[in-house]
Design a protein around this nucleic acid. Structure first.
Lengths: 353, 353
DNA sequence: ATTGAAATCTGTAACGATACAGTTGCGATG
DNA sequence: CATCGCAACTGTATCGTTACAGATTTCAAT
């Protein structure tokens, strides 16, 4: 097949136990560095047999392109940045999100870099950093707002991204969201089916997009199922558990006490329960509750609560797929997804095994 | 101050709106690229006034060294890799860990890359990857074992690392650990103070180092406080909640039923509680429990449980400090820390605000 | 003056990869 | 037989940074 080793291909002997580079392969195959590079990316001007040979050698010696070399020359970082606020939800939305993302990235060349910021300060900070330093090929953000300046900025600057949650600016972009409207609607349905009529909603902070989604679903359901809202706007799921508990205890002690609750977060639900009990009322009797949850703790510890599961791990997977899709130029419509709430059967207290 | 612009310092005009590089600063200051580079790293052979000038310009134009350039030339990645198993604890140990680490890294040039692996497969996989590709300057691992091949490998290959948990191989290395022996000891003390005498331990999986720590503390306390152990080894905190619940229900139904429990994990505690109740017993009456917890859910939902708080966020901070310390060559003894369990006052059911 | 040493500054090469502009060989074309 | 086209391959320059081996200037000591 071969045999002729005449010319001097500008290659020096294989360095040693060092990491193989294109040069190593070039030396071993007797080809030029350029040829090897092009062969590995299946360029059209390289002979089929040569490509085969190069690929074989590359695999044999476990060649992996040097990320710094590629990045310096091409600007491609092979990094996806997950931008999160340091004050992330107590019930740990981050763990399953990270797991979901890495599950997808594991099959690719991408690494996941976590870039935190203090949400109380400048949310644009990390985005600017990434833009200025070219730190990532794509970005995943959460806590999306209807008019999100991060989305505007990344769009303007053509930085691929995907958002956890939707926006309302007429900008079409990749996202994954949980159908919070549907969640609230179905939650109210459950409560009214149990005869509850005076309902409260523990809502997301007003600046986030899913605040209005949840409210919309809640209010539509109130009309459809004939229930009324009990006002409870002083606190939201971003407040401390103590603040939520105290506010709710007060409400439960008042003449306005609701008989049904829709909780927009699992940790919020915990505080609400404490508030109910501090007021001397009983969950499941005086008042029923439906909560969105990211795990099944609540179901185990308080089976009286009806829970709707939001699978954050799946969200992580969808978001990772979405950014990568965007980077690869796939049509945006295919990079948007909405996951439906999964109503969970209450866990029976005593179950045979 | 200046005025003479005579020579041709091999610099071309400032590219444009592009990212500033050493070349940009060289052009602006009229110095050579090398000089600028050396000035910024405070090399001894650069004049004081020059350094000042260079630093000023660099700050003004917001110069940030190109990571790919540095990495290619020096091999320094400025990356810390957090290696975690995809099947990380359900109660989300990952979130606060990531937050803690990034809190420290935020003040440095380091980025955090999350490198996952399937613990059922090869735990050495990610380590080998990092070694082979030079993907990180330092590594943080968890689920440490007494004879941990990852520690051996990284030590041999001089890859800086810190472990969450200790080893027992005579290798001195940076770590952060929770004092699980003390936790179990104090837990037993609490239970015996309440008159409990027949105790079980829901232990960590036997392969992890803190398994023996916790057992040791447990057994020493049994002797010191005069209690006896009820055997419960079929399950450990790595098993599914369902498996734990079922096993514990069975135990609680048997004549061997314990009257006190030490739970090595918060999520395990949830399953144990379910088991107690499935057996028709009552927590706080028939049986008391002390659990290690990474958050304060349990305290909110089941105030009957006595909890000892393990601050994972602090662990993240300590581990980040430790790897960086190791990279910087600080003495190992200063990079080892042990955090003490914080006993939490039970949360009063009704508290004024 | 001559030498030398110290203090400052600088050009070149290299890290590994790729874009680009060739070069080579060879059969087909007129 | 000169020319062209095409397939297959290669050298050079470059990305931004730093190690290394000079350069240049100054000034004191001889």
């Amino acid at each position: 097949m071969d045999g002729k080793t005449k010319n001097k291909p500008a290659t020096t002997p294989p360095p040693d136990g060092a990491r193989p580079t294109l040069k190593t392969i070039a030396f071993m195959t007797g080809l030029g560095i350029t040829t090897v590079s092009r062969a590995l990316k299946d360029a059209p001007d390289i002979g089929a047999e040569t490509k085969e040979r190069v690929r074989l050698v590359a695999k044999q010696i476990g060649y992996q392109p040097n990320r710094a070399g590629v990045r310096l020359r091409t600007g491609k970082t092979n990094v996806i940045s997950l931008v999160l606020t340091l004050e992330e939800e107590i019930m740990g939305i981050t763990s399953p999100m990270v797991v979901g993302i890495t599950e997808i990235l594991a099959g690719t060349q991408y690494h996941l870099v976590v870039t935190p910021y203090s949400s109380t300060k400048d949310p644009l900070g990390p985005i600017r950093y990434i833009l200025d330093t070219g730190a990532a090929d794509g970005v995943i953000i959460s806590r999306t707002e209807p008019h999100d300046p991060r989305v505007t900025l990344m769009t303007e600057r053509h930085l691929p991204f995907a958002t956890h949650g939707r926006t309302e600016m007429g900008i079409v972009h990749p996202f994954h969201d949980f159908d919070n409207e549907r969640f609230a609607y179905e939650a109210v349905r459950r409560l009214t089916e149990r005869g509850k009529r005076r309902l409260v909603l523990l809502e997301p902070p007003p600046n986030l997009t899913f605040h209005s989604h949840m409210r919309t679903g809640f209010e539509r359901a109130l009309r459809d199922f004939g229930a009324e809202a009990v006002s409870f706007h002083h606190v939201n799921i971003d407040h401390s558990l103590v603040a939520i508990r105290d506010a709710f205890e007060q409400l439960m002690r008042s003449v306005d006490a609701p008989d049904g609750i829709v909780s927009g977060s699992g940790s919020g639900a915990i505080a609400l329960i404490a508030g109910i009990e501090a007021a001397g009322k009983k969950l499941g009797e005086d008042v029923d509750m439906v909560s969105k949850v990211p795990s099944d703790f609540l179901r185990w510890l308080r089976p009286e609560v009806m829970t709707m599961y939001e699978d954050i791990r799946v969200a992580g997977r969808e978001l990772a797929r979405a950014v990568i899709g965007r980077i690869e130029g796939k049509p945006t419509e295919t990079l948007q997804s909405l996951s439906q709430p999964e109503f969970q059967r209450p866990m029976s207290k005593s179950r045979k095994f």
